[in-house]
Write a protein that binds this DNA or RNA. Sequence first.
DNA 1: GTCATCATGTAAGCCGTTACATGATTGC
DNA 2: GCAATCATGTAACGGCTTACATGATGAC
Lengths: 208, 208
Amino acid sequence: MLDLALLGLLEEGPEHGYELRKRLRTQFGLLANVSFGSIYPALSRLETNGSVETVEGGSPVALAPPTGSLSGEWAAMRARRRAGTRGRRSRKVYRITTAGREFFLTLLSDSTADDARSFSLRLAFARHMPPEARLALLERRRAQLVQHLTEVVTADDPELDIYARSVAEHTAEGVEQDIAWLDRLIKAERAATDASAPPNRRKTRRSA
Amino acid sequence: MLDLALLGLLEEGPEHGYELRKRLRTQFGLLANVSFGSIYPALSRLETNGSVETVEGGSPVALAPPTGSLSGEWAAMRARRRAGTRGRRSRKVYRITTAGREFFLTLLSDSTADDARSFSLRLAFARHMPPEARLALLERRRAQLVQHLTEVVTADDPELDIYARSVAEHTAEGVEQDIAWLDRLIKAERAATDASAPPNRRKTRRSA
DNA sequence: GTCATCATGTAAGCCGTTACATGATTGC
DNA sequence: GCAATCATGTAACGGCTTACATGATGAC
């Protein structure tokens, strides 16, 4: 989960842990509460297994200098850069590697363990997937939700009091809306596929 | 979380672990994947801390005998009952205690840690709460979701591609619907409170 | 000079999972 | 007798949280 999210963000360019966390919080509601205690160890792990590398002596992130006292700022920065290998402050900037990109794609299309959380995350990164994988992801999720509706939600149970029933009903509605949303996405996805690669249609039949 | 759910179910009558799990799966979508590896230890814990007790020699749960071979079934059952203290099979039936009921109420109104999961669970058990606690729960949740909308979801970010944007939009819609739902519940809750305890309305002003 | 914020990291622990082990009962 | 289901339990491990520890920088 976290690995996937981090690698996905790093696909868009090098970043450091503190900033990655901010972006996780704002861009992915589901991982909104992810803490430093998770992400720093995760980044270390990814570095040891070769998925990411630290940017040595990289330009210390283009920052609009926030008014005045430039000389002091620059002096401090140069001092730091001379002292360590890192840029401004003690940031540790990570960049995704080729191996990391492969690993990312593996995680993205790993069809096991797709609950609501990892589904949303995967879909958010769907542009990195081949079209068939996207469709497969959407359809797998749809099937799961339909299944869920049949066997789990029981809003019409006469035993339930108003509160339990309200929760059950609202949950069911949510699931139905998710399915409708997925249907729209699936339709769009198929349209896009057909448009970009109009299949060999010898023996064209009238559309059903 | 699990403790709360288990105690809540046991409030409706004694049950054994296997059956409790089934009910968790069907009644609470959010805990749909809870496993035996969680619930048996949880029940043991609850027993040691005095929240539940095992039903000794209780009637082995009224079961509609599933066709034929009655004599054999009954013989086996009687044998089992003579041998151990438990009913049919080796079921271990738990019953909530007075202390357990208190603990349940504590867990229910413990306002720390209310994410989506525990909110739904608590609301499903809301009939056990005093009216003010119910209102407080609903309003706390509402405030959280409003907060979430302002700081987390960013569907209008120009950087997002269609997939990320679609996820962000759909998430935001979901949150908005949740808020609308909570508003209905809050309104209903207030109406009920006013009806049962019409407040001292000396100096009645015309409604704003 | 001190406070808030930025920034990284470690350690302990919680809560849940999977996998494994065991055994009774029923249906075929 | 064998498989499926019901039923309980343990052990190892995973992922994430909280709390703690550290320190640099910038604002006032």
